[in-house]
Amino acid sequence: MTELRYLAPNSLDEAIKAFAAAGSAGRILAGGTDLLVQMRAGVVKPGLIVDIKKIAEMTKIEQTADGGFRVGAAVSGMALHDHVSFGKVWPGVLEAVNLIGSKQVQGRASAGGNLCNGSPAGDSVPAMVAAGAIVTVQGPDGRRELPVEQVPAGPGRTNFKPGEILVSFTLPPRPKGSSDAYLRMIPRTEMDIAVVGLGVSLTLKDCVCTAARVGLGAVAPTVLLVEAAAKALIGSTLDEAALNAAAAACSAACRPIDDKRGTIAYRTKVAGVLLKRTTAIAAQRAKGN
C-alpha cells in the first residue's frame, strides 16, 4: 500500500518546497473537484497532496491599481460569483467559471484547478484566454508570468516547470465599451462537459469592434487562442460578413477528434455557431458599458 501525505501550509514558499521535493508524486489540491475524482477512479495515486487553500494569496480576489483584477488560483467559483464587482467587469469569465460542475461543486472548484487540470474542455480556460489573462506561477526558481494560453501543453499536461505552482490570474483593466461572454455546447443543460466551448472578449467604439480575443476549447489538444477570428471581428461592425469570417476561422482552427462526446464534423461546425452566438452576447453587454 502506498502512503499518502497531506500538507496544508500557510506560506507559498513552504508549499513550493514540499511540492518540489515530492517530484512527480506531488499533487496540488485547490478545490479537489478533479483531483479527488481522479484518485477515486485510480487514475492518479499521489504520495503527497499540498492543499493551497490556507495560503492567503491563493484565495484572494483583488482589484489592481490600474483597474484590473488579480484572482487567486484557489478562489472558488462561488467566491468569484459573490464578489461585488468582478462579474460586472468580466461577466464572460464569471459565467465560464460558474459552469464548472454543479452548484455544490462551485463551492470548491476554482479557475486555477480548471486550468492546471489541463483538460482541453475546461470551461473557464477559453474565457480566460479571451480575456487575455496573465498567470503568475512560482517555483523553486522564483516567480514568473505567462499568458494563460501558454499554460496547457496537451490533455492533462501543463508547461509548468517541476515544482511550479499556479498563484493567480491577472485580468487587464477594461476600456469603455468592453465586455465578454462564454458559451459551451453540451448535450444536456448542465452537469456536463463541453463538446465545444468558446469565449469572446471585445471592445466596441461607436459600434465598431476595436479589440477582440477569441478562446476556443474542446476542439484540439489544448484550448486555442484563435487570432484569425479576432482579426475578422476587429474593425468591423460585427456585421454578417465579419461574423461569417470569424466563424469560419474558428471552424478552421479546430483540430478535433471523433470521440464519445462528439464527432469531428460536429465540433467543427459548432465552433463557428458558438462564435456567432457568443460574440452577439458580448457585444450586447459591451453596448451597456
Binding site: 444536456r188 443543460t189 448542465e190 452537469m191 456536463d192 462537459i193 462526446r261
Partner: peptide, 11 residues
C-alpha cells in the same frame, strides 16, 4: 453519469 447522459432537472 458524465458521459452516460441521463437528463437532469433543467433538461
Amino acid at each position: 453519469f458524465l458521459d452516460y447522459r441521463m437528463p437532469v432537472c433543467s433538461d
